[in-house]
Amino acid sequence: MAKTGSSTRKENFANTKRHVTSYDVALHAGVSQSAVSRCFKPGASVSKKMRERVMTAVKEMGYTPNAIARGLITRRSNMVAVIVSNLNFYPEVVSELSARFTERGVHVLLFTLDHESDVSRTLERVWQYQVDGVIAAAHFSPDEIVTFEERNVPLVFYNRSYEDIPVSSVSCDQVGGERALINRLTKSGQHKSYAIITGPADSVVSMQRTQGAIDRLHESGVTDVTQVTGDYGYKSGRRAVQEIIELRGSAPDAIICANDMMAFGAMDELRFHLEYDVPGDVSVVGFDGVRAASWSSFDLATVAQPVESMTEAAVSMLMDRVDDQSLPPEKRVFSGVLRDGSSVRN
């Protein structure tokens, strides 16, 4: 039996051992090369019949799109960098960002910082990849931000805001969230003495949350406030509780933590090592609203950030500026949601 043209053509490509191109697929499917390209471009207008025709040819020919070649044509790498300070505290955010970029056919390069002061060395690595844009959950200096303008690389900050610098950002209302937590603690009238476990000294988010808490406590007439420093980690929450009690001589009525992870450490140190009852003896609150906060073993009172809305906004803002770099900077602030929990006594 004579072989069909399509099967013969497929065998010929296999025999020559050369890569199948979009031109080959177009010829095999009887369509234009631009039609093949549109089938692999997210959001492009392609009829169902055309897509089925092209995809059948793709399967028969064993075609795989060449991302590098496509980047040369569009003058884009189809890659973005996501820079986060300490991945341990942003897994849900990174997952959401990755999913949203994938929907747009964009690849994510993840860069993590042990300390926010490590930004300059990380940026040297980022520039090597010719990324189309950057989302950063870390603090940049004014000079580092200017570098993005000089290189024409769009930049959007996640959960970082700059009042005096024209740069795009998506953030949670840190101060408003802390005020809601303090209101929750003070409304019962049972908390007279407080301690605050801050994040790292170079964390802008920690500074905003800490200052928001202190200001609201002072407005409420509270003067008995002890402040110690953590590093956002679980172990530092446990260490901070020990330091608080050493400084005070006893536990305060309430401990305010700059994030949920340190709150978990503080609760466990109080309950399992120092044998305090939470919240009977000491109330504990956090900030972020990570999934573990709702677990029965913690049931932490915290402020949940609207991660899905914030990541969608960050991705949309960045890709809009990749498409049109003349767009002005945009700042969006999302309100957190107070999540009450049994870690605070009524």
Rank of each mutant, 00 (worst) to 15 (best):
Tyr276Val: 08
Asp277Gln: 15
Val278Phe: 11
Val278Trp: 08
Gly280Asp: 10
Asp281Cys: 12
Asp281Ala: 14
Val282Ile: 13
Ser283Thr: 10
Ser283Gln: 11
Ser283Lys: 08
Val285Trp: 10
Gly286Cys: 12
Phe287Ala: 04
Phe287Gln: 04
Asp288Val: 14
Gly289Glu: 07
Gly289Ala: 09
Arg291Val: 06
Arg291Ile: 05
Ala292Asn: 12
Ser294Tyr: 08
Ser294Lys: 14
Ser294His: 11
Ser294Met: 12
Ser294Arg: 14
Trp295Ala: 09
Trp295Thr: 03
Trp295Gln: 11
Ser296Pro: 03
Ser296Cys: 07
Phe298Lys: 09
Asp299Pro: 10
Leu300Ser: 09
Ala301Arg: 00
Ala301Asn: 04
Thr302Phe: 03
Val303Ser: 11
Ala304Gln: 10
Gln305Ser: 00
Pro306His: 03
Val307Tyr: 04
Val307Phe: 07
Ser309Cys: 06
Ser309Phe: 07
Ser309Asp: 06
Met310Leu: 08
Met310Phe: 05
Thr311Ser: 08
Thr311Lys: 05
Glu312Gly: 12
Ala313Asp: 05
Val315Leu: 00
Met319Glu: 09
Met319Pro: 01
Met319Ala: 02
Met319Ser: 03
Asp320Met: 10
Arg321Glu: 14
Arg321Lys: 15
Val322Gly: 13
Asp324Gly: 12
Asp324Cys: 09
Asp324Tyr: 02
Gln325Gly: 15
Ser326His: 03
